[in-house]
Simulated scan of single mutants.
Amino acid sequence: MNLDIYNQDIRLIDPICSPVFKVNGKRGVLLIHGFTGSPHDMAYVAERLFSEGFTVSVPRLPGHGTNHKDFLNSTWRDWVRRSIDAYLDLTNFCDEINVVGLSMGALLATVVTSSFKAKKLVLAAPAFKVTDWRLKFTPLMSLFVQYREKEPPVFDDPSLNKLAQEYWNKVFIKPAAQLYKLQKIAIKSLEKVESSTLVIVTQKDNTVPLSVLDVIREHLKSEFKTVVLEKSAHPVTNDVEKELVAEKIVEFLSN
């Protein structure tokens, strides 16, 4: 096997990006992170659920949490396959399984739930609709450019700075085209979802508009509950209201 593609920039996955699997009873929860994210974004909610008696699984999606070259070589099929595998792994430990997804993870959670009939579904800042109108043009744009550089955010945490240098200092065109394909598939999958559903959105989301609720109402046949946050930015499971988000998810999945 030729491992030359794994150059010196690829090291062991940082601990904050490592997948989580913690067994604590027969009620399971699969938590799926978003586009350019990592299990770190779901860690707080997962730990809270674990403390409440749930077995939790937070997979690391292919291409995420390593480097941008991995990301450029991953596709929506890879992300769906990993999500399905993680769901099936949980069936070996749990009698019931719930699925929680953030942003693109909510799209994956919808696809999984529509196929396997999870007991409950939580869609956090679900990317069925995004504010960036250029997304629909990415399949064409990706034929000419894979990404463009931008100024990365700066963090006190070295692990987050490493992720920023690999993922958050670029506008990814090629992976965004994969996200666009997944978005269309997930919207169709909504029509097959029969599980009780909780949708969490935030007024300060610059990525997913509140009008995403209209998309869900149009395509989801069953009723759903909604939580509208006031202070959080897009990554609601890992932002200033993460305690409230965790509380709402625990309450929804426990009842």
Rank of each mutant, 00 (worst) to 15 (best):
L3N: 14
L3G: 13
I5S: 13
Q8V: 10
I13Q: 00
V23R: 11
H40Y: 12
A43G: 03
E52Y: 11
V56F: 07
P62H: 12
H64R: 01
H64K: 01
G65V: 00
N73D: 10
D78H: 15
D78T: 09
F93E: 15
D95I: 09
E96T: 15
L107I: 08
L107K: 03
L108T: 05
A109C: 13
T110C: 08
S114V: 08
S115V: 07
V122W: 03
D132A: 11
R134H: 06
L135I: 13
T138L: 08
S142M: 08
F144M: 14
V145W: 08
Y147T: 06
P153V: 06
P153R: 10
Q165W: 04
N169S: 14
K181F: 10
K181E: 10
K184C: 08
K192P: 00
V193H: 02
V199S: 04
Q203W: 04
Q203E: 15
N206D: 13
S211F: 11
V212Y: 08
R217C: 13
E218L: 14
S222N: 15
F224R: 09
E230L: 12
K231G: 05
V236S: 12
V236E: 02
N238R: 04
E241Y: 03
E243Q: 11
K248P: 01
K248G: 01
